[in-house]
């Protein structure tokens, strides 16, 4: 057996590594589905805002001594609906408003954690997560989230497709566009919060944007884009975990490094190919 493969097998003997791999794969499914919708609807900034504002929910939970997950989910859903409402009502000012909520939510969380006696939550674990320390309970939670997302997306697929492709036309056909927008933003908020706990805020944003972007280049339908995004995302997670194990570096960061490297390689190759094709057409 060649060296690297042996290392990989060795790596998978550890329980925490098996959990990390499973967490990565489960997060990939959620991020592939929601990320594709976020990317084609150009809601990346909104997703970032929701993810950061979620820290306000973490702070609130610790300050009031409430259970963290339900409190964060509630807080993020509230913040996301506020952003959704603002982005629908004041289209031109949407990015500013989201930026304000983004920063305000985060500052709110940090202040509340400062005021909480005796406990000091690590901001770094919120930003980068701890994929190597995922409890089994969280894996079940993520599997449930994946199940819900798959069900909702397949049930609403035609409407989501029409809505994402051409909102004006959807409205003219009598579709409940506002409701769909809220559904989409709500799904994004839920996904982001559930997965932040596991892989951290920055990895969530990376997995929400890079795999769908890679998938969009080739996909012939939104469904295929989702599947391809899930595939890319799994590749990034597994590759990143292997590298992080091999070289003993932070796992979240090495997953993002693998994704970014692929991103730049692919866009670079595309640019070169386009230039070659253009010069070929000219001659």
């Amino acid at each position: 057996m060649p060296g690297p493969l042996q290392d990989l097998m060795h790596m998978l003997q550890f329980g925490f590594m098996q959990h990390a791999v499973l967490a990565g794969l489960l997060a990939s499914v959620a991020c592939g589905i929601v990320g594709s919708l976020v990317v084609v609807n150009r809601l990346v900034f909104l997703a970032g805002g929701v993810a950061h504002a979620a820290y306000g929910g973490v702070g609130l939970a610790f300050y009031l001594g409430l259970p963290v997950l339900p409190c964060t989910v509630g807080f993020s859903l509230g913040a996301s609906m506020l952003m959704a409402g603002v982005s629908l009502r004041y289209k031109e000012k949407a990015d500013t408003a989201i930026g304000v909520l983004w920063a305000a939510g985060m500052a709110f969380g940090i202040i509340l954690l400062d005021l909480t006696p005796g406990y000091n939550v690590d901001l770094m674990s919120f930003l980068f997560g701890s994929i190597l320390a995922v409890p089994v309970q969280d894996l079940w939670l993520m599997a449930a989230l994946d199940g819900i997302l798959i069900l909702v997306t397949s049930y609403f697929y035609p409407t989501l497709l029409l809505f994402s492709f051409d909102r004006e036309f959807a409205r003219a056909r009598g579709l409940a566009v506002t409701l769909l927008h809220c559904l989409l933003v709500g799904m994004t908020a839920l996904t982001v919060v559930m997965i932040i706990r596991v892989v951290g805020l920055i990895l969530v944003i990376a997995l929400l944007t890079i795999p769908p972007f890679m998938a969009q280049r080739r996909a012939r339908s939104l469904a295929r884009m989702m599947c391809m995004a899930i595939g890319w995302s799994c590749v990034f997670c597994l590759g990143g975990l292997a590298i992080s194990y091999q070289f003993d570096i932070t796992s979240g960061a090495s997953i993002i490094a693998v994704a970014s490297a692929c991103f730049f390689c692919v866009t670079g190759l595309d640019a070169v190919r386009n230039r070659l094709r253009a010069s070929g057409a000219r001659s």
Binding site: L161, F169, L175, S221, R224
Partner: peptide, 25 residues
């Protein structure tokens, strides 16, 4: 947007008496 021509045209056949839960295509 990743979509083929036929699928775009088929969107026009969406059930018009649609609410979020009953719309079919």
């Amino acid at each position: 947007f990743p979509i083929c021509v036929l699928d775009v045209v088929l969107m026009g056949a969406m059930n018009t008496a649609s609410t979020l839960f009953t719309s079919t295509w």
